[in-house]
């Protein structure tokens, strides 16, 4: 069996993800999370008499806290395996990556373990976000004057 045939065989036996079902689940759960956040934002506005913008930040913080705690308890990974993107793309995925890195590298020590690895997965979001902002920001200043 040459290499090409082997690749073919591997491809044939790799389980195909259920694309349609996964997409529908991601859409539905992601949408529910969006609506729930909107509800939370309006409730925060009512309870604390906050402007919408600050209430929005508080919603983000709430989701981050919930996601961190669920990650530490091991519930988040089970949920991600079921609903996929619906929990990775919202800010919960960001919190999950930081908390899971902190827990995973705890055994390697506080500085070389937790400290050095806490941004291991979330760092990519921050890096490319900041690089994009510098690039687009300068572009906007040059073209539109700010």
């Amino acid at each position: 069996m040459n290499n090409k045939e082997y690749q073919k065989l591997v491809k044939k036996h790799t389980p195909k993800p259920k694309v349609g079902k996964n997409a529908a689940i991601a859409f539905f759960i992601g949408g529910l999370l969006g609506s729930f956040s909107e509800l939370l934002q309006e409730l925060y506005g009512l309870w604390f008499h906050m402007p919408r913008k600050e209430a929005g930040v508080l919603v983000i913080l709430t989701l981050i806290l919930i996601a961190s705690i669920l990650t530490a308890l091991g519930i988040f990974d089970v949920a991600v395996a079921k609903v996929k993107s619906a929990l990775i793309i919202p800010i919960t995925g960001f919190a999950h990556s930081i908390t899971s890195a902190a827990l995973e590298y705890k055994t390697e020590g506080f500085v070389l373990g937790i400290g050095a690895n806490i941004f291991k997965l979330a760092g990519t979001v921050i890096l490319y976000g900041v690089v994009a902002v510098y690039f687009f920001g300068l572009l906007r200043i040059l073209i539109m004057g700010g």
Binding site: L33, E38, G56, P90
Partner: peptide, 17 residues
């Protein structure tokens, strides 16, 4: 879209800029 647009990671880029 209210919070529906604030929750996804796309809003991280939006808030940064």
């Amino acid at each position: 879209c209210g919070a529906g647009a604030i929750i996804p990671i796309t809003s991280f880029g939006h808030l940064l800029i």
